[in-house]
Design a binder for these strands. Structure first.
Lengths: 247, 247
DNA sequence: CCAAAAGTGTTTCGGCTACACCCATGG
DNA sequence: CCATGGGTGTAGCCGAAACACTTTTGG
């Protein structure tokens, strides 16, 4: 951060970036230097940029990914969410220059966005200058987080679960080709409940957003499952038009 | 407005206040002096107040109503939503003092809230200092609005329709006691489609949020319909817990 | 050949839809 | 007594849930 005068004061964006790996729902988090606590990837908003644009920039800076599903879900506007100690904690740990003290002492509100990204596509997530590392953490075992970031993640997860009743997920969250059981595992993980294998298949096929390939996932024990991929056009239509039934 | 130094810069809240009257969904709007355009009731956010609190204050100032359903639904963050002409329009029409010029020239984002209020409970909605009147306008026939306020209303209405799949409405939007056809008319108006009289009744009763009184609505021609009221405890549980089926 | 997972089919149940019919009220 | 809207019942359809059975793979 060089100059705060071009930034919209008191406003930040935070991104809850979901990934799926080893049957766990994970969130991309930054471990802050010195403080040890973890934080969501976030950023400030330039005075002459759309808020949505800045959220996309955050995602791109940490993962290199652009142009994917990124959805605003809530504004967190409690007056005490970053006070009284956040700025002094940053200063005391030498994470920010003292000339930015007043900037960080402002009352801040933050806009929450969530994204769904393919785990394997994020090879080396990049920490920001005040973080020592950027890693995927399982959503079920989060360490201590700064500010209200835990609450932001919970709200993002709740929103994702609700949206699942109207929209498919999987594209950008799974590899290009995947099996039906893998897709089901994703749904079960996000929804935090078991689904019937056969009914899941039928329902998912009824959406008509899948293309069956003639390849199979070999190498595992037992019968080799068929690989599918998304029909991207129809998938997009399903996102826009909305699905009827829920889970 | 006396002093902008206590306000969170570049941030406002706007409330889409829905009412229901004569089988029309209405929105409480302010007609701005001189300019003639209409605007949503809104306000700025004090540096030491929660954003939610300020939204409630806006509602209270215009309607006198407090402690009712008021839901944040979206942050509008386009960089050009209040520029380049909004501040100069206000100034040219003498609506603001020139000492506030720079305040209104800032880039503004706004948080949208929507509320459901009982039409009859708002006897004399109060205009703000820069408005000549405050009135209910039918959502289907909106005049010219300032900024992106039309888009904000559209988004609020879309959100309301979606929420209807998971939550009941009616409390705070209808009088204390109401008939089943009146409740149905509300649903049909919000959803913008006709529903089957008999199926509507069955479905609504299945939610178990209604209490049947032994009174009837007299005075109309034909059979006098039974009056119902909401079981407020169960209604609240339905809001929190969510209903399953949709419309 | 066996265990375990993938793939297919079938039955059942409940909710929603689309009706027919009776009841009450004002005119 | 009749037109009109309120109130009640019911048959049929469709989707979801529950479950049995076959197929395929590695070991």
């Amino acid at each position: 951060m060089r100059d705060t005068t071009t930034l919209q004061p008191g406003l930040s964006v935070d991104c809850v970036i979901f990934g799926f790996h080893e049957n766990e729902l994970k969130v991309l988090m930054l471990k802050m230097k010195k403080m040890g606590k973890w934080a969501l990837p976030g950023g400030f908003v330039d005075r002459d940029k759309d808020v949505d644009t800045e959220a996309n920039n955050v995602l791109k800076r940490r993962t290199g990914i652009e142009n994917i599903f990124l959805h605003q879900f809530h504004l967190f506007g409690k007056v005490d969410r970053n006070r009284p100690n956040h700025a002094s904690n940053l200063l005391d740990n030498g994470l920010i220059d003292s000339k930015f003290k007043s900037w960080f002492e402002q009352r801040f509100i933050t806009v929450g966005y969530y994204a769904l990204v393919e785990y394997a596509n994020v090879q080396a997530p990049k920490p920001d200058p005040i973080s020592e590392k950027c890693e995927w953490l399982p959503i079920t075992e989060l360490p201590e987080l700064i500010l209200d970031h835990r609450q932001i993640i919970v709200k993002a997860h709740e929103t994702l679960k609700k949206e699942l009743n109207h929209q498919p997920i999987g594209l950008n969250l799974l590899p290009e080709k995947f099996t039906m059981p893998e897709l089901q595992a994703l749904y079960e993980t996000v929804l935090e409940k078991k689904l019937d294998r056969r009914n899941f298949r039928r329902k998912m096929l009824s959406y008509e957003i899948l293309i069956q390939t003639n390849e199979r996932r070999l190498g595992g024990a037992h019968k080799a499952p068929t690989l599918y991929q998304f029909d991207k056009l129809k998938y997009k239509q399903a996102i826009d038009g909305g699905l009827k039934s829920g889970w």
